[in-house]
Design a binder for these strands. Structure first.
Lengths: 196, 196
DNA sequence: TAATTTGCCTAAAGGTTTTAGGCAAATGCA
DNA sequence: TGCATTTGCCTAAAACCTTTAGGCAAATTA
């Protein structure tokens, strides 16, 4: 009886690869066992359950994204930094669709705290130092940036922008232009609207 | 042997309710059968398979969203229309989280064509008539708006903005302000950046 | 009323999840 | 080196979900 050498780390990494190949929603403990040519039950010594496996995959993705983001931001500021950060998310989603999807997996509070999630918002804040925003606008802007990046990438991955002109690459560039313009020219709180 | 009176329509509607109660990802043919107190196999006369069921739920959600959006836009223009449309998506997601999630379900081309998807982008375009954008900027703006609305709502639903100040409602208002400012002041294509 | 269609059923096969208990390989220690 | 312990993968089994096939009875139509 030869041992394959499974462990939690290897399983999670293989799970991440599997996610990229078949989609995060099709990652199963069974499929992972098959990939190691091992019986399913064997995995349960290394991973608590299916949810645990998915959580670990998500943590890998968040970590990889954070590393790339930090690299991308190093030495850049302003629009240059904005584009670089946006491209990190977009490129990662294209290279690793399953991992990217996993990063949206809802983590329980404990996992969330241990994840790279906080670093992501810290990097957004670092980026915003190149613009002239103070609290609470900075927080609003962090959330807006996150929304645009995530929203754009997920709609694009879902095929929302394909098969219609103009090219999605073009829109992406214009989106970055628009965000930059918006951040440089962040509006005051709008006066209350008076209906009629 | 009493008949419950199943049909495709009722199943899809019940599926949508189920989605709101247990989450779209936990909608199963089995659970739906249980809800009608009927054997699982019975559903397969009305619904092709699990994927078909989910597709139908997504179509319901897209349709309901389109109806709400049309109502919200009627008689409004500019920022007023922008806010109304954004609130449609956000409020729908809060009232019907499972249905909202289903609207992100990737439809195959045939279902997509038959869905209310097109009406959604047409309404975005209608909204943008209140701003001064011509093609291809209008398309860019449609995509940006879709990204922000979807991104914001899905991050907010995922708990991304909770437990931290300022309030998510506040950010939402400022996000609408920001989008309005951006659309009123849509930037020219930015000059190419020269690295170094 | 008879014929047809339709609706729900039983049966069954195959896949995923998860727990329990067991044997053998690897490791640690005398 | 030899023995004890730990660890890794196994078999077995229960529970649940998906899907197909074939059947009988209720509803519909002629």
């Amino acid at each position: 009886m030869v041992r394959v050498g499974l462990n939690t780390e290897r399983l999670a990494r293989a799970g991440a690869e599997l996610a990229d190949e078949v989609g995060f929603e099709h990652v199963t403990v069974s499929a992972l066992a098959r990939r190691f040519d091992v019986k399913v039950a064997s995995l349960y010594s290394h991973v608590k359950n299916s949810h645990d496996l998915k959580t670990r995959i998500a943590m890998i993705a968040l970590e990889e994204l954070a590393v790339r983001a930090a690299e991308a931001l190093a030495g850049r500021a302003g629009k240059d930094a904005l584009s670089a950060l946006g491209n990190v998310y977009r490129d990662y989603a294209r290279e690793h669709p399953g991992r990217y999807a996993s990063a949206q997996f809802r983590l329980d509070p404990e996992a969330a705290a241990a994840s790279a999630g906080l670093r992501h918002s810290q990097m957004m804040r670092a980026l915003l130092r190149g613009y002239d925003l103070t609290e609470p606008d900075q927080t609003h802007a962090v959330r807006l940036l996150g929304s645009v990046f995530h929203g754009y990438v997920s709609l694009e991955m879902g095929g929302g922008f394909s098969h219609s002109a103009p090219d999605s690459d073009e829109t992406w560039l214009r989106t970055l232009d628009a965000l930059d313009a918006l951040l440089r020219n962040w509006p005051e709180q709008a006066p209350e609207q008076t209906p009629e």
